[in-house]
Design a binder for these strands. Sequence first.
DNA 1: TATAGATGGTTGCACTCGCAACAAGCACGG
DNA 2: CCGTGCTTGTTGCGAGTGCAACCATCTATA
Lengths: 149, 149
Amino acid sequence: MDRLDLLSFVPFRLNRLATEFSNALAADYARFGIDVPEWRVMATLGMHDGPRSANYVVRCTRTHKSRISRAVGQLTKLGFIERLESDDDRREIMLQLTSTGRRVYKELLPLLLAREKELLSCLGPAQAKALDDVLNVLEESLDLMRCER
Amino acid sequence: MDRLDLLSFVPFRLNRLATEFSNALAADYARFGIDVPEWRVMATLGMHDGPRSANYVVRCTRTHKSRISRAVGQLTKLGFIERLESDDDRREIMLQLTSTGRRVYKELLPLLLAREKELLSCLGPAQAKALDDVLNVLEESLDLMRCER
DNA sequence: TATAGATGGTTGCACTCGCAACAAGCACGG
DNA sequence: CCGTGCTTGTTGCGAGTGCAACCATCTATA
């Protein structure tokens, strides 16, 4: 092969598809004044009952710590999360959703899931399963699965 | 569902995967002093023999025209492409690879294809086909397939 | 021909991102 | 107890990006 059909180049296709998906969700995020990194923090905190450290969010979302740090600042300013100091390690900052944040989370979540469903509605059940399988294998291969502690 | 496992949220997974793929290719691009948008331009021009307009590259790669414009500037500075003026429409700028550019293209292409193959090597043949099918359906649904003229 | 609107391409601007440097705090060996 | 090195989180900075405004040019219509 001495020529490339860019449209069949998987890195390009993934990149474009991810961008389209992000754009499709942007309006939902914007409704609450947040963006993708902020949502990642909220989603991570929303998964658990107790507080989690900022570093936990970093590992869990595989997002750069500076990005998380800024998202945390923004969410704090919005009153959606609060910072608690950790007892056993004063470097760590424990984060948890405020009641406002939890309300926003509960309101935003169904919107995002509906949008995801809509985006994937063109796939049949078998294809949806195939996508999930393929993503799992790729994530496993790239070691993106661990979310320890 | 009142909680989201972020790790199963497809937009998030796609975004992360696309980032990992891009990062895996970054070193190959960097070897020639270019980046993703520059590669998109070169790949588009490399697909054809004759020159193509900047706008053709925009439509074909679904990349914002300002990004393409800057990539074109960079590639011109590097001497990988050249701008020709169009006969029938003096607004259009026709682009084509220089001989240097074509040499770079021919050298870079196998590196990128090998990297892609490596990234996808964790998938069996059936899964690779499934991925291709799913991408096709999603792209069709998002109307990302057209690359007219 | 004259004029209004559409199109191709460039650029200023504001914003986001990742990197690297940094401060503060922890852990462990001497 | 001290000091060295590691970890958590913040921030300054440069690079890249999208939007919108803009110029030049083309097209359609009267």
